[in-house]
Write a protein that binds this DNA or RNA. Structure first.
Lengths: 187, 187
DNA sequence: TCAATAACTAAACAATCGGTTAGTTATTGT
DNA sequence: ACAATAACTAACCGATTGTTTAGTTATTGA
């Protein structure tokens, strides 16, 4: 054995996550990461391999952070009304710390849309798929809906959620609220 | 007098525009611009000052390119149905040349959302404002709608348009179509 | 015809990018 | 107490970023 680490990997990743969340992958430099994480490049590379590794861990950290909200959504039993609440919760989580950062998954999805990065793309696709399935599950609580309607409405909701997350970075609370209310008016 | 320019500024800007449209501002390098525009860095700087200048001109070029579609929308008289058609036209314009590039204004709006670039931000804000006013004008054709409803629905549509443009980069035609149809179901 | 001048080429600029490495410091088990 | 070793610092790597500039080529009016 030898010297102990002077930092906690989970702690520094959370700091890195906020940087990526706000600025995306390309617009976050190793220099910024050093400063924000409070550790040296050497330590970053020793712990996470490379910049991409820091990003992947940051994404996991984000999913951990949003897990509570997700579980609340999963375990709820109000049907469509739960989806609406989930939309409101998703928006609220990006408002923390003054700066509006949107949804990190959506930001990543957009930034990597034209990329060849299979690791990230697969993570994103899997996330979107499970989101759609969750929506279908909630929509099914209204048993009058047939399969085609379920698919169409779930597709609509995934896109609405995606667009909403993009919009939160540029629009104000009132506009966001109007949007959510209108979205759920005929579901 | 002296030597003539061996290139046409409008022609090379159109080529630059496609690069920015697809890759955004930061992910388009001067090297890529040189290659795509077919002229030397010296000529680019002589004609447009700097990279930012090339981008501003590219944005103008994009607005010129979409002017036809906009005029069609302005001059139509079908109310909400015209807005829906405008949504479809907006999506279609990004599908040209195989690659899905979304809406250049929306892409720019998103990329510069956290930026300090006042020149770009003002252009974007002015664009969004005039879009909202156009929506209100079309919505007004249904005279039963009061001012509050008009505002709310216009806000909804601006966000829906914004989200739609973001989504076109990652979703397929069928999903996009479902989204547009659902959006206009209760307007 | 020829000096003036604008357009061009190509090399170089400093700054920054992600990533590496030689050398120093601290902690360990023996 | 001390060799072994992991964690750390800081300088450095080559490549690329946006931008500039010295030197060359082509076209002009006189």
């Amino acid at each position: 054995m030898a010297r102990k680490k002077q930092y906690n990997e989970e702690e520094v990743i959370e700091k890195a996550m906020y940087l990526f969340w706000r600025n995306g992958y390309e617009n976050t430099s190793m220099q910024m990461l050093e400063k924000q994480m409070g550790i040296n490049k050497f330590s970053i590379y020793a712990s996470f391999g490379n910049k991409h590794g820091v990003f992947v861990e940051s994404l996991k950290c984000y999913q951990e952070k949003t897990k509570t909200m997700f579980d609340k959504f999963k375990n709820a039993s109000g049907g469509v009304e739960d989806i609406k609440q989930f939309f409101y919760d998703s928006v609220a989580i990006g408002y923390q710390q003054g700066f509006e950062k949107g949804c990190m998954v959506t930001n990543t999805y957009n930034e990597f849309s034209g990329s060849e990065d299979q690791i990230i793309k697969e993570q994103m696709a899997s996330f979107m798929k499970s989101l759609k399935n969750l929506f279908i599950e909630k929509l099914k609580m209204d048993s009058t809906k047939n399969d085609e309607t379920l698919q169409k409405q779930a597709n609509f909701l995934v896109l609405a959620k995606h667009g909403l997350a993009a919009a939160t970075r540029v629009n104000d609370k009132k506009e966001i609220e109007d949007y959510i209310e209108m979205t759920f008016k005929n579901l």
